[in-house]
Design a protein around this nucleic acid. Structure first.
Length: 615
DNA sequence: AGAGGTGGTG
DNA sequence: CATGCACCACCTCT
């Protein structure tokens, strides 16, 4: 394909004086589309130095040396960056957005992000979305050389930028134009413009959320993990004591202390212990298996693991991620890491911090800054509402319309008992059975899976046949739910993709007919496709809600920021005196987002105000 | 370094 | 036929 530039010799101008900067900006202000990229010496905008800001037309890249250019003295710079009529073309815009906001005090407007675009175009296919991946796939293999990317780590305030580095910086923006033209066509062809626009609108909100970060009470956190660590250590010793007699040798250190018999964390050694020494005959050591084994050693291991998990995953490692400049955690919210459209999160992952319990309350350590409150809202039973709405099942819709307790109502239908407001009290065990069925079937669960779920939930051991009958009962109660889910599975198995009503698509690798795993892979696609419109619509709604909530904050002049999102939840930090008013506003913006997709079932969002995360 | 097992969340 | 969706972090083992 024809490239608009020679990658060995890209057209660029290196700008180090205010006079040439002004001239460059005048040239740029005539462009309809500007590619934007920055080079910095760190991934962290708080500790890093902004080195280069590349602003490019399709013909030429203007490379501003941010160490000598004072952007604040160039009003045209801010005007261009915040001009909604000029498209800003970026790859992974949220990274550049953060640097530009923090170091040059502009907020990019009208973003087209080639990384996000690729994400919506290739969801589910397991492809990389790095710039190099896109260029390799779409333009030419190995055209883009990213070796120089790391070279900027060593650049400081006074280091000279090499010609090679400038060529690299220029190429990174110039290459975005051909990618953009291809993706625009692909987005049209797949009818994904609307979802791409949504993702582009979410990107600055994510950048803002990542910049703001979240406060964590370190002392309180350390107290929790110290307590859990002690419990873990005691259980480890007890475990070794309990198995000592099974081992012929007894290790002793030089002071007479008893050594460990096995490495308690080694799955291989545990299997040897359980199957060869104890004759338990178990296929694996995961908790779903171990919880059915009545054995004191197994019990010790399960308890140990509970604490060991918490200490290792949520211990000191997490605190090390506190930013030295802000004193807060700044997790990354990954906008397109999942096949369904949901966010993922890392460094640290705050989407799997354990729920508060009597024994430990990690989420209570997430607090607002002094003078602020946490304002949080989440969708109630949202996925169940989506299922009811999309399937059109009358009984499920009416139950939700009438605000019945949905799991009690399901149990009343399945087990032929009258529904009442105190059903939960009168038939707790029936409700307990119905709950995992409702959730499980949304994910395409089968009878054997349900046996395990019911056991974990209720401690009741049922047969696969009984499980099968329960599933049938559920589907007889909600017949349209079954036909809806089956249709989703069938379509995906035929077409190789599924979509949410908002238009978000997910692709599947359809297996060849002669594939050894043909049936297994096809079943898997069926289950994924049953779940996709449900989980994906939840994701669509929360992404709209993030944009709406952010706009609302600006409109209502709220002193605050969005700090977290966890799938069906948005948490904000808001100045004390505004928190009570903003809480219902946040909930209503979430409802407005949800109502874009649910037409037959009400959307409910529950707001909370407090000094800790979680209510 | 990468795979596999395990387990935390929605 | 195989048998629950979506993730990320930590651990061991190769």
């Amino acid at each position: 394909m024809d490239l608009p530039f020679d990658p060995k010799n890209p057209a660029f101008e290196y700008i180090t004086s205010m006079e040439t900067a002004q001239k460059a900006l005048e040239d740029l202000s005539a462009a309809k589309i500007i590619a934007v990229d920055v080079e910095a010496n760190s991934l962290d905008p708080y500790t890093g130095v902004l080195l280069l800001v590349q602003l490019s037309t399709e013909a030429k890249s203007y490379i501003f040396d941010a160490r000598s250019i004072l952007f604040k003295d160039l009003p045209l710079y801010k005007k261009i960056m915040e001009d909604s009529n000029i498209i800003k073309l970026l790859h992974n815009a949220s990274f550049d957005y953060k640097y530009l906001k923090l170091h040059t005090h502009v907020e990019l407007k009208n973003i087209f992000d080639t990384m996000l675009a690729e994400g919506v175009l290739k969801a589910g296919l397991g492809m990389g979305y790095r710039l190099k991946d896109l260029v390799d796939r779409r333009i030419q293999k190995d055209l883009l050389n990213k070796d120089l990317q790391k070279s900027f780590i060593d650049v400081t305030k006074n280091t000279k930028i090499t010609d090679e580095q400038l060529k690299y910086a220029a190429s990174d923006t110039l290459i975005l134009f051909p990618l953009f033209r291809q993706q625009i066509e692909d987005l049209k062809k797949e009818n994904l413009q609307k979802i791409a626009k949504l993702e582009f609108a979410v990107s600055p909100v994510v950048a803002g959320m990542e910049l703001k970060g979240v406060f964590i009470d370190v002392k309180k956190w350390r107290k929790i993990i110290a307590d859990l660590g002690e419990k873990r250590d005691r259980l480890a010793i007890e475990f070794q004591e309990a198995i000592r007699h099974l081992y012929s040798f007894s290790q002793m250190d030089m002071f007479g202390g008893m050594g460990d018999m096995i490495n308690i964390n080694s799955q291989v050694q545990l299997m040897e212990l359980f199957n060869n020494k104890l004759g338990l005959n178990i296929p694996s050591t995961n908790d779903a298996i171990l919880n059915r084994v009545n054995n004191p050693i197994v019990k010790l291991l399960r308890d140990y693991r509970g604490y060991a998990k918490l200490v290792s995953t949520y211990g000191e490692n997490l605190l090390q991620k506190i930013n030295p400049v802000t004193g807060r955690l700044h997790p990354s919210f990954l906008q397109i890491a999942t096949a369904t459209g949901r966010f993922a999160c890392n460094d640290p992952n705050v989407q799997n911090i354990p729920r508060n319990s009597k024994e430990f309350a990690f989420r209570e350590c997430f607090n607002p800054a002094p003078g602020y409150k946490i304002v949080d809202a989440d969708f109630s039973n949202f996925e169940m509402r989506i299922l009811a709405d999309f399937s059109g099942d009358e009984k499920m819709i009416n139950a939700l319309k009438n605000e019945l307790d949905i799991h009690s109502y399901t149990a009343s239908l399945m087990f032929d008992k009258p529904y009442s407001n105190d059903f939960k009290k009168k038939f707790p065990e029936l409700r307990q059975m119905a709950k995992p069925i409702g959730f499980g079937l949304m994910y395409g669960m089968g009878a054997p899976g349900l046996v395990g779920r019911i056991y974990a939930e209720t401690g009741k051991e049922i047969t696969v046949e009984e499980s099968d009958q329960l599933i049938n009962k559920f589907f007889q109660s909600y017949p349209r739910v079954k036909s809806f889910l089956d249709k989703m599975a069938k379509n995906a198995q035929k077409n190789g993709w599924s979509s949410t009503p908002a238009g978000r698509k997910r692709w599947y690798h359809l297996p060849d007919k002669d594939d050894i795993d043909y049936r297994r892979k096809l079943s898997s696609i069926g289950r994924e496709a049953k779940n996709h419109p449900i989980q994906g619509t939840n994701a669509d709604a929360i992404k709209y809600a993030l944009v709406f909530a952010h706009e609302r904050m600006v409109k209502d002049k709220i002193d605050g920021a969005i700090i977290l999102t966890v799938h069906d939840e948005i948490a904000c930090e808001v100045r004390e005196d505004q928190a009570q008013d903003f809480a219902p506003a946040l909930a209503s913006e979430m409802v407005r987002a949800g109502e874009l997709f649910l037409k037959k079932v009400p959307v409910v969002s529950q707001p909370f105000v407090g000094d800790v995360w979680e209510h």
